[in-house]
Design a protein around this nucleic acid. Structure first.
Lengths: 195, 195
DNA sequence: GCAAATTAATGATTTATTCAAG
DNA sequence: CTTGAATAAATCATTAATTTGC
């Protein structure tokens, strides 16, 4: 069977990403003009109508809420069941995956932090940015270093070069440079075992 | 007491939130010391070991990448067939490679200087913020990004990137736009060297 | 409504690649 | 060419969510 011409909107990756970004930045229930703006912007990446945007936010909001609820209930359940006896060892023997000491900091409590969602204003700012800058951005950079063995030995580590990198990350934004970059650091998993 | 010590780690909502926040702020493959830090912080919200953190980032990164690939292939398919949503998760049925294409190229990387460039610094800063939040902090605080005691422990304190920008407080997020480049096909992390 | 049966998620392991030293 | 370090991909296994038949 060929294809149904146009059954329903199927967001392109770009569209999805932007929508998610907007959501993360606080947009929840955009009003008509906001929807229009968003739609206009997103239409660069593919067919899209205002209602798609509207529905997307509606659905996404609901589903995130659901996810949260789930998590909370799980948490609750855990709290009720209390204690977490440390499992002696997972099913199979881990080669060298012993947990590191995890310094038992004498930390006081410190209230559970909450991540406040930003006000939608930010979302709009973001949109503005997107609108004005298009999809031109390029951020490369990256680097690597490795570490590993943190579990195994924790003391043999041969880290390398003195950092100080020219490394320029475009600072289009204030704080968090390019958050969505690529990987950066490293770590390891196994260590010597086979011959 | 039928307390089957659950065999595997089950993140609490707080832990999950923090991990996701770190991920969003750029942490991808935390090295040993970062893992320790994170673990230490998260352990306040429930049982957790370093390996759990390690695995979490491994898996999350891989699955985000996978998701992206899927989206891209769906998009392509969409473009080719003019639309029609594929089943979202084929679940694994046949054990054969049939993942999405995404990048035909084998691994290639751009010869960027291989510096440690801990982009994750951001993430860690975030963590620090969390730690210090409520300014009740104790131990960690003063050794955090300055003393590097934890680093010292691993003998890598030698490298201490001057890079750290003032780094504002929150405003999470990178405001990357269309960047579908979390896993850029071309930017790898390793250094280059003629073969 | 509930509990077995299914299905989806995701933590934990294993295997394959890659680059770079010897 | 071989080997080691470090990953990323594949996949295994268990837990959470859904569906389904009473």
């Amino acid at each position: 069977m060929p294809q149904a011409p146009s059954t329903r909107w199927c967001p392109t990756p770009e569209q999805l990403m932007i929508l998610e970004e907007l959501y993360r930045s606080g947009v929840r229930t955009p009003d008509a003009s906001q929807i229009q703006q968003i739609t206009a912007h997103l239409s660069r990446y593919g067919r899209i109508e205002g209602k798609n945007v509207f529905y997307w936010f509606q659905n996404h909001k609901a589903r995130e809420r659901q996810k949260l609820r789930r998590r909370l209930s799980i948490h609750h359940h855990h709290l009720l069941c209390s204690g977490y006896p440390l499992p002696l060892f997972p099913r199979r023997q881990l080669h060298c995956f012993q947990d590191a000491p995890v310094s038992p900091l004498p930390h006081h409590h410190i209230p559970t932090s909450h991540f406040p969602h930003q006000d939608a204003t930010q979302g709009l700012n973001l949109l503005c940015k997107l609108e004005t800058k298009g999809d031109e951005v390029t951020a490369l950079t990256n680097s690597t270093l490795n570490g590993h063995e943190w579990l195994a030995k924790m003391d043999i580590h041969s880290i390398n070069p003195p950092c100080c990198k020219p490394l320029k990350t475009l600072d289009l934004f204030p704080t968090k440079s390019t958050g969505l970059k690529d990987e950066c650091t490293t770590s390891k998993s196994r260590s010597a075992s086979p011959s």
